[in-house]
Amino acid sequence: MKWLGLIATAFTGILLLSATPYFPSFGDPNSPANAGVNGGVSVSQYYITETYTDTKVPNIVTAVLADYRGYDTMFETVVIFAAGVAIFAILRSFGGTTIPSHPTAIDTSVEGDHQRIIIGMTCKLIIPVIQLFALYVVAHGHHSPGGGFQGGVILGASFILMALAKELDTALARFSEKRYLALACVGIFIYSGFGLLCVALERNFLDYGILHRLMPATDEIMARSHSMLGVEVGVAFTVTAIMFAIYANLSSKGRLEQGF
């Protein structure tokens, strides 16, 4: 079985490698992906040259993510939400079966006490900075590297750090199951709400330009920029909640009590 697998893998690898001479070489600015085929303009060239006139967003990646490919991103967010719901459905148990509760393995010696103080103090100092940075990454995502996905993951990681360093209950006291499930739903609603608002104003779904009617002192182009920020906030909500939900359910076998 092992040899069969090795032969199959080697065969596939050689097959793939034998095709590489026909690929454009590394860093080639004129490759089809970068410059289009037969002198035509590729979609990525259009994004680079026209993003700023279309949307006033300097970060091209965010503009493509939240505006040009808004549908795609919306359903990626839904996929993440669905993953969270799936984990809830698979693992979550509500303590109906009597599981012998493990005595939480906390070291009560003096040395263990010292270690807890060091870890606790470090977390106290570091978690607010992480969360502030996460909010910056979300809010500044259309001007500098960042965005909803990245900021959401960082924010989720700060709660996971809290659960890792202290106890899961400590993190759950601040970000309970009810709250994170609600937050995940709110994120999806914000994103699709922006889309439906455009439909209500007689435009296409997620065609943000028309939202300038609802935003004071903006034209159609700035409305796109502001709507992208709103959409990114929705993404960040969902990602934060689901990242923490995944950790909390996996680490406690779905009981959301102290793990192990």
């Binding site: 992906a33 979609v43 680079i48 493509v64 991103t73 984990i87 965005g147 990245q150 689901i242 995944i246």
Partner: peptide, 21 residues
């Protein structure tokens, strides 16, 4: 090229959540 960055940005996060499942 911004397009691969966009595609992979979402793929990474979706990859993490499918790994969680």
């Amino acid at each position: 090229n911004p397009l691969p960055h966009v595609l992979m940005l979402t793929a990474i996060v979706v990859g993490v959540s499918t790994l969680g499942v």
